[in-house]
């Protein structure tokens, strides 16, 4: 996993709520056996017509909106556990997703892939959508070290929560597997203590 670096970027607004992982990456694109290339099909059926031409009214096809940050309505990433959704967002170029709440499995998958989910209050989310609407180029800043999201215009610094362990992982590019492997002795001891049949 790559280290998460401080970000200064404009943001892409997607106010739809309950965006499920089938929209983020439809099942028919899950036949690949590697992690690469899913960005091409990110939001495939919202982004393209069935003949492959771009849908002009979809936000990712609007050149006015760009950046490393996706801002989405509540319950983002619900549905299927497919990690391909996190891979697709990251592969497309997003490094941060902001919403007022995330589906649990998606959130875990995002954190395991260097994609930072930032949960803000519904009021702040509205403020962010308004800020982007009034100036699509306005830059937001993400400082994971200090756990703040800097808003344009007001200059407000919004604090966000993150598990301290996951924060360390993101900042250093560690993944859970490194940590779990370091606990091998404890795991074997646990098995012996409860008599797991090996």
């Amino acid at each position: 996993m790559e280290k998460f670096k401080a970000i200064k970027s404009s943001a892409v607004p997607l106010p739809a709520e309950d965006v499920d992982t089938d929209q983020i990456i439809p099942a028919r694109f899950l036949k690949a056996t590697t992690r690469e290339g899913f960005g091409d099909n990110l939001f495939r059926d919202w982004r393209y017509n069935s003949d492959g031409t771009p849908k002009k009214d979809f936000i990712l096809n609007n050149p006015v909106y760009a950046g490393d940050i996706l801002v989405a309505g509540k319950n983002f990433g619900c549905g299927s556990s497919r990690e391909h959704a996190a891979w697709a967002l990251y592969d497309f170029g997003f490094r941060v997703v902001v919403s007022s709440f995330f589906a649990d499995i998606f959130k875990g998958n995002a954190l395991n892939n260097g994609l930072l989910p930032i949960t803000v209050s519904p009021e702040i989310l509205d403020e962010i959508f308004l800020a982007i609407e009034s100036n699509p180029g306005a830059e937001f800043s993400v400082d994971l070290e200090n756990q703040t999201l800097g808003l344009p215009v007001s200059g407000k610094k919004v604090s966000f929560d993150i598990d301290p362990y996951k924060k360390t992982c993101l900042l250093n590019g560690y993944d859970d597997l490194d940590y779990l492997l370091s606990l091998k002795d404890k795991i074997e001891q646990f098995e012996r203590d409860r008599g797991v049949v090996i």
Binding site: S81, E83, A86, I105, G108, N109, D176, L177, I187
Partner: peptide, 19 residues
């Protein structure tokens, strides 16, 4: 019983554990 992502599938393969 719960669903997990592919990175976690790898973790369970390697350690039979999850965070």
């Amino acid at each position: 019983a719960f669903g997990i992502g592919t990175s976690q599938v790898e973790q369970v393969f390697a350690t039979q554990c999850l965070l």
